[in-house]
Design a protein around this nucleic acid. Structure first.
Length: 317
DNA sequence: AAGATTTGACCCTC
DNA sequence: GAGGGTCAAATCTT
């Protein structure tokens, strides 16, 4: 699992291998950062922040720009709707479906209950090939009203039928009023954010009100999850036309605490280190949610792909 | 009545 | 063509 995806070895190391190494380093940095979160040493925190920035930049540079599913993506289903409108007796045309291949936004956890603090609405269930247990499909309850595209899949664990395997896709962009964080005034000086990619939103970020808004977003993100304030996700935003959308995602506060499940869920595919002590111990506030971790791994280059995938981010221009 | 779940069909990717 | 993800009508629950 930790093995490099591609082994194009001709003396040097493949980008995938380098990416893995960087990832590992970053995961350790994340862990470190979460630990330092509780220490009064702001300089140490600044160091880790800088580490994260550098790693983010490196990861962004390494990330494959030409994502897998280019833009060809979906076919336009132009005729179908008209046929329905014309009164065809058949069922309505399905709008679309996007099969999710392995995405870095996928995070799987096992738990004894399916609740994770978020509000989900079941929209499907399917029996999966080679799996005795059906898989249930959930999407965020706020999909319709807030366009939150987070989804998850729940399946009874093969090894332990009393447990559920939950896979998370996408990030919550909804704002549950009860989880809207308060801005933390002195959590981090604004100057810090100026040095991060988050605040550097590209050439168009000179507008004063815009930068102010972004600063607030950065602060909100830091309040919710310090990691996000300097993640490479933010780096992506700095160079992406979707920056506005990304920013709103960053500022999204709907990441709920790691669930009220009876037993601390152990992570299966979470980044090494993050999934370890923090989660198992159940004492840390980081990561705030599996889906928030999706941001971190999502910065590995395929975020661009996902951002273009309206199944995950349904922002319409 | 409104919202959530069920379920079979549709559609897309591999 | 198989497998998997999503849609949406029907049904159920609150």
């Amino acid at each position: 699992m930790a093995s490099p995806a591609g082994s194009v070895e001709d003396g040097g190391r493949s980008p995938a291998a380098i990416l893995d190494d960087l990832l590992e380093v970053r995961d350790h940095a994340v862990k470190l950062q979460s630990m330092l979160q509780w220490t009064p040493s702001s300089s140490a925190a600044a160091v880790t922040r800088e580490m994260m920035n550098r790693l983010s930049s490196a990861l962004s540079a390494l990330s494959p720009g030409g994502g897998r599913r280019g833009s060809g993506g979906r076919k336009k289903k132009s005729g179908g709707v008209d046929a329905d409108a014309a009164g065809a007796a058949g069922p309505l045309r399905r709008r679309r479906s996007c099969r999710r291949s392995k995405s870095p936004f996928v995070k799987s956890v096992t738990a004894e209950v399916t609740e994770d603090g978020n509000q989900w609405r079941k929209y499907g269930q399917k029996r999966i090939h080679d799996c005795p247990n059906p898989r249930s499909y959930y999407r965020c309850t706020h999909r319709t009203d807030q366009g939150c595209m987070a989804t998850k899949q729940v399946q009874i664990s093969d090894s332990n039928p009393s447990e559920y395997v939950m896979s998370y896709f996408g990030e919550h962009t909804c704002r549950d009023p009860s989880t809207i964080p308060y801005f933390i005034e002195d959590e981090a000086p604004v100057e810090d954010y100026k040095n991060t990619n988050l605040i550097n939103f590209g050439s168009g970020a000179n507008n004063a009100s815009t930068s102010h808004r972004r600063r607030l977003m950065a602060e909100a993100a830091a309040a919710v999850d310090p990691m996000l304030s300097c993640s490479s996700f933010a780096a992506y935003c700095s160079s992406s036309p979707l920056s506005r959308e990304c920013a709103s995602v960053v500022a999204s506060p709907s990441m709920t605490p790691p669930s009220t499940v009876g037993s601390a869920p152990h992570a299966e595919f979470w980044p090494a280190g993050v999934a370890g002590d923090d989660m198992a111990g159940g004492t840390s506030s980081f990561p705030s949610s599996p889906s928030s971790l999706g941001f971190m791994s999502g910065s590995l280059g395929s975020f661009a792909d996902l951002a273009g995938d309206d199944d995950l981010f349904g922002f319409d221009p």
